[in-house]
Amino acid sequence: MKQPPAYTLYHPKWYRKRVSTWWWTEQWRSFKFILRELSSLAVIYFVALLLWLLWSLGKGPDKYLEFQSWMKDPLVIAFNVIALIFVLYHSITWFNLAPKAMPIRMGGKRLPEWMVAAPNYVVWLVISAVVAWFILGGN
């Protein structure tokens, strides 16, 4: 739809209201939606953090220690906790939306929504458990 909208711009009689920049503050639902959109920044942040960790490891022990001491800063810890909350919010809302985008049919009937969402959670938990087992030193 590249062509201009069908109604005449600046029509003298019709009344048109401009949408406020702050429309998302008017309702809790819209606010939650914008939080969800913003949570993608936290995802980017953790990806960057992981890349930085790998880069530091590659550069040798000095760089890695520098990274570790930065991570131990209380301000950084506080920031990471907030970012983690956003990432959890992002993941949960994402998994809950999955059934909307993927209506899976079996035997002519649409699977109930939870049956599409649940496997996402299971895979998430399993991967998290494996990662935790690695980090916490299981052999």
Binding site: F33, K100, A101, M102
Partner: peptide
């Protein structure tokens, strides 16, 4: 579409336009 989901919430005929759009994206 940013998948706000409001369209589906208000639809008086339970059409689920938001679902349609996401399926279309895939």
């Amino acid at each position: 579409c940013t998948f706000n989901g409001e369209c589906t919430r208000v639809c008086p005929k339970n059409v689920d336009p938001a679902g349609a759009i996401q399926q279309y994206k895939i």
